[in-house]
């Protein structure tokens, strides 16, 4: 009977491990990390696997010792317990071993964090009248509210006085659409995150991108997509999925009221700037159109027949 408890601990821990292994080994189940589609995503995934490897080692070692002890040292076993009180060498050893592992993780994390977040911080472009950061190919203002995202795309070059002015006032020709993030593969995208009401969090799983929006602040965020999932079809006048058939979503990751789950958006990564420009131009013409006939058949939609992407 005493062996039963050892087996129970073994079984439960192995079941936990097995679930992780199954989830990793069978991507078809959809139980593992979603597609990764940005430079940052690949780095974060590598880091995730590094940590998983180290944790797996410690997990197997410690649980192994525990389960073996339960098997080997029940009260019914012959002999008597050893009266040992401690061992300084062991203590030093098992203080240093995890420390080394943790320092490895820290060292690996620092450059990724710097890459993901330090650029544009402190945000120079927002506090004064500084011009647009030169390295950005695309600037998108994301305004969160209960409960959707409004994205503002600049359709002409930004005013010289900088993006602060553009973010707060903008141009008549700006394209404002809800819940759709359009970028192109390889573009250095600069997002400006805002909110009008409560804290939201802009979460794009495929980009491994997540950043809270804070009332009263504009928070810059960078990413560069590495895989495209759509292209603009001028003949149909809409965005169509490419061979990856990937559908990437945007979610809110900070509780923002009852309909927190409702803030679903979509990410469209065009293959190149040409496709993106064609989409932008088309969308702008649609939203700026002053005649009914030019709008048909999609008379009311600035954002085309996205439904075709489902």
């Amino acid at each position: 009977m005493h062996r039963f408890w050892s087996l129970l601990f073994a079984a439960v821990n192995m079941a936990c491990l097995a679930l992780l292994v199954v989830a990793y080994a069978y991507p078809g189940l959809g139980w593992w990390l979603p597609d990764s589609a940005s430079t940052q995503a690949n780095e974060i995934d590598s880091l995730f696997y590094l940590i998983t490897g180290l944790c797996a080692f410690f997990f197997v070692a410690t649980q192994g010792i525990l389960i073996y002890s339960l098997w080997r040292f029940p009260s019914t076993a012959p002999g008597s317990p050893s009266p040992i009180h401690g061992h300084p060498g062991l203590e030093i050893g098992w203080t240093i071993a995890p420390l080394v592992g943790l320092l490895v993780i820290t060292a690996a994390s620092l450059p990724v964090w710097k890459e993901a977040r330090y650029q544009g911080f402190p945000p120079p472009a927002l506090e004064g009248t500084n011009p647009l950061p030169p390295e950005a190919d695309q600037v998108i203002l994301v305004t969160a509210r209960q409960w959707d995202w409004h994205l503002k795309y600049a359709t002409e070059s930004l005013p010289a006085e900088g993006i602060r002015q553009w973010a707060s006032v903008g141009n008549p020709s700006d394209l404002i659409i809800a819940n759709e993030l359009h970028v192109w593969k390889g573009a250095k995208v600069s997002l400006l995150l805002r909110t009008t009401d409560v804290i939201h969090s802009f979460f794009v799983p495929a980009l491994r991108l997540k950043q809270d929006t804070l009332p009263g602040k504009t928070i810059p965020m960078r990413f560069e997509a590495t895989v495209s999932n759509v292209r603009f079809d001028p003949a149909e006048g809409r965005v169509v999925p490419n061979e990856t058939k990937a559908s990437w979503e945007i979610a809110c990751a900070e509780l923002c009221g009852g309909n927190h789950f409702r803030m679903r958006g979509k990410l469209f990564v065009h293959p190149d700037r040409k496709s993106y420009d064609a989409w932008l131009d088309h969308s702008r013409r649609q939203t700026r159109s002053r005649s009914l006939t030019a709008m048909l058949p999609n008379a009311s939609s600035s954002n085309q027949k996205e439904g075709a992407l489902q």
């Binding site: 209960q146 409960w147 959707d148 409004h150 659409i177 809800a178 819940n179 759709e180 309909n259 409702r262 803030m263 679903r264 958006g265 979509k266 009311s300 939609s301 600035s302 954002n303 027949k305 996205e306 439904g307 075709a308 489902q310």
Partner: peptide, 16 residues
């Protein structure tokens, strides 16, 4: 498109 300026969200990404 939702109603900007009210709490009505945009549902444009639902299937047609």
């Amino acid at each position: 498109m939702g109603l900007h300026g009210t709490s009505m969200p945009a549902f444009g990404i639902l299937p047609t």
